[in-house]
């Protein structure tokens, strides 16, 4: 049996009072890659953003149900959002490095946690850039503006930046969709590498990508009512070879949008 890190129980998210996803119950195993797939608009990003409470930033969003992280309800009364986001990192669809140096991008998280010691910061920056397979490419230009990097390098920098707060979970929302095939491959290799230490939840549109990198797959679909629901969850291999639900099969064989 897998050890569970994150769990949603009957999770529903409303935008302006209208549900976007409904009744999602899902368990994310530790040190595995879980892919969330489904057609556009079915609520994949909405679900992902519940895991680090990024939906808090959208005034019209309201969440009901529970999201348990190591058994603690993230939406409980005494929960410190800052701490949640530190321990559950996020990488976005479009690479979004700060217009600062490569070094300062990675040091951002540690700095706001109050780490000032230069040697400690140097050590964190190097470790995270290595973990994100970027160190060799940037070690000679750490103080150059991050925006001078290529898209693929920027995305790996964003991963390094997320790792610097020492999270346990990494949420990735279509992290490779803005990248070319070679940069995508590098990110996928990196994810496999990171999965030894981290729990990864990835949203992807790319079915091959889900099949290639993930251990578990969740398939979501919005019905006629445009409310996203979890259709099927299981080991990736089973979802892709012997789906239980007819709609999953239709989707992965390309008979759907």
């Amino acid at each position: 049996m897998e050890e569970i890190v994150l769990e949603t129980q009957n999770l529903t998210v409303y935008y302006n009072g209208r549900p976007a996803i409904e009744g999602i119950s899902l368990r994310i195993p530790r040190r595995r890659i879980t892919a969330i797939i489904g057609p556009s608009g079915c609520g994949k990003s909405t679900l992902l953003r519940c895991f680090n409470r990024m939906n808090d930033l959208i005034p019209s969003a309201r969440v009901t149900g529970r999201v348990l992280f190591e058994g603690v309800d993230l939406y409980g009364p005494d929960v410190d959002v800052v701490e949640v986001r530190r321990r559950i990192g996020m990488v976005f669809q479009k690479p979004n490095p700060f217009p600062k140096s490569i070094y300062e991008n990675v040091a951002f998280g540690p700095r706001i946690q109050g780490i000032r010691d230069r040697r400690k910061l140097d050590e964190i920056v190097e470790r995270c850039l290595r973990a994100a397979a970027l160190w060799d490419e940037v070690k000679d230009k750490l103080h150059q503006n991050a925006l001078t990097l290529s898209g693929g390098q920027q995305q790996r920098l964003c991963i390094a930046r997320a790792l610097a707060t020492e999270p346990e979970v990494l949420l990735m929302d279509e992290p490779a969709s803005a990248l070319d095939p070679i940069a995508t491959m590098k990110i996928e290799d990196l994810m496999r590498e990171l999965a030894r230490e981290y729990t990864i939840v990835i949203v992807t549109h790319n079915m091959q990508q889900a099949a290639r990198v993930s251990d578990y797959t969740a398939f979501m679909l919005a019905g006629e009512d445009r409310v996203g629901r979890l259709i099927e969850f299981g080991p990736t291999q089973q979802i892709f070879t012997r789906p239980r639900d007819r709609r999953t099969e239709d989707y992965i064989t390309g008979r759907f949008g």
Binding site: K94, N96, P99, G109, I112, A162
Partner: peptide
């Protein structure tokens, strides 16, 4: 997207404003 990046790293609203 820059604000989101900072929030996702655990920055408070003030830190997002001042540092990003």
């Amino acid at each position: 997207s820059l604000r989101e990046a900072a929030y996702a790293l655990g920055a408070t609203r003030l830190e997002v404003a001042l540092r990003v």
